[in-house]
Design a protein around this nucleic acid. Structure first.
Lengths: 232, 232
DNA sequence: AAAGTTTTGGAAGGTTTTGGCAACAATTGC
DNA sequence: GCAATTGTTGCCAAAACCTTCCAAAACTTT
């Protein structure tokens, strides 16, 4: 990859996540931190971004930062990053994946990069993440936007997934106990069922706060038990 | 292969992928890197591309430049704002509307505010605009994201609109002549047909640059003639 | 068919870019 | 307010890349 392409990629990445660390950017574009530093210096000269300690931030904030989940996502961010990393490692290059909505799944999506070419999702933030990429084919489910989460829900969304197939589905949940996996919205549970039915392999991504916790509604009925483990 | 043919091939390749390495291009056209270098030098002299370290980049990234969606686009922004204002004024409060993709329609969406409660769209930027609002019910069509436009296209998107009904549909186009309204993309035309079929009233929103201009492809076949006029 | 012209592929040498390292500055935790 | 941690700058060697040149191949002209 050449310098300009890399810089464009960095700029695009920053516009979506507002702020990114040097390490994160280096990994995203696949070069050393030294090179990212130089790129950031160039971009800063072009007034498109601003460098900060430990990374950089976009001057023209993204459209997707209105989503509350990005804003309130400041704690446990390190754990979720690791979780995303670990979960992305379970994906084989070239597979097509279904990605659920939610912060945890969003972090997985950030780590997928060029590993996957086909992405099926009902998450607006995930769609925004890949919307500018010519290397990805992103299939967004139809449906009604659930305000502030940026998730597409409703019969239309369910139908989309019941008609599609993927190698892997990456799902999130709000609790897990010996009885199964829980989620807190009936509408989302319906969609998850369709996602599971349409995928050869299902990965649930849950951070440590979800363990042993039963969420308010709707235990998830599924025969699969996959745990995405993140080193503490 | 002839030199000119090769150069045309390189140019086309670059317009699709924006960036390409020397190696990539050499492989694509089946010649040595030396030859590609010479071709790039020739093309650069013709101002169609720009060489970079390790490859080249296209100067006109997309042929249908008018369709590259850019929210922070400063081009004719004042006119589009007025157009959006004028067009939004044609909507009765409480109506539900279908909104097409494209910059012009995006400006209409910005002016809708609380006037409408139900919005049906295939535009990712429009969806993002209302995604945080609890006062709007936004129905996003399914489909595949057309890169860089943020538009959902494909059979899934067409199907969504053919199954929905709205009071008004706000559409955009890339040209209008006595023969009809043009659009530059077959995939988008399919969707627009479905949008028109599903709406009681259709409004086409076109800025002055589109008048008397026939776009490259696909004249729009519709019996409706509504002009959204913007004072000069 | 032979000589001349153009184009092509490859190699040598100079230039830019990259990645890592050490010294310095900023931030954090106590 | 001080030590520890983390990030930054400047620098150097290695790698990648570009330019220039040359000989072979392909095409034209005679």
């Amino acid at each position: 990859m050449q310098a300009e392409e890399r810089q464009a990629k960095i700029e695009a990445y920053l516009q979506r996540s507002e702020f990114a660390s040097l390490e994160e950017l280096a990994q995203h574009v696949g070069v050393s931190t030294s090179t990212v530093r130089r790129d950031l210096a160039t971009l800063e000269a072009g007034k498109t971004i601003r460098r900060t300690h430990g990374g950089a931030r976009s001057l023209q904030p993204s459209k997707s930062d209105e989503f509350v989940f990005n804003v309130r996502d400041t704690h446990q961010v390190a754990e979720k990053e690791r979780l995303g990393e670990a979960c992305a490692a379970l994906i084989q290059p070239g597979q097509n994946v279904i990605i659920d909505s939610g912060t945890t799944c969003f972090h997985v999506a950030k780590r997928l990069d060029d590993k996957v070419a086909q992405i099926i999702t009902n998450s607006l933030p995930v769609a925004n993440l890949f919307s500018a990429s010519v290397r990805h084919e992103v299939h967004l489910s139809g449906g009604v936007i659930y305000p502030r989460l940026g998730t597409l829900v409703g019969p239309h969304a369910v139908e989309t997934f019941s008609r599609m197939h993927a190698d892997v589905a990456i799902l999130s949940g709000s609790g897990i106990s010996s009885e199964g996996i829980y989620n807190s919205h009936a509408l989302i549970v319906d969609i998850q069922r369709a996602m599971m039915a349409g995928a050869a392999k299902v990965i649930f991504c849950l951070d440590h706060t979800k363990f042993g916790r039963r969420s308010t509604f709707f235990p998830q009925c599924c025969p699969i038990r996959v745990v995405c483990e993140s080193p503490k």
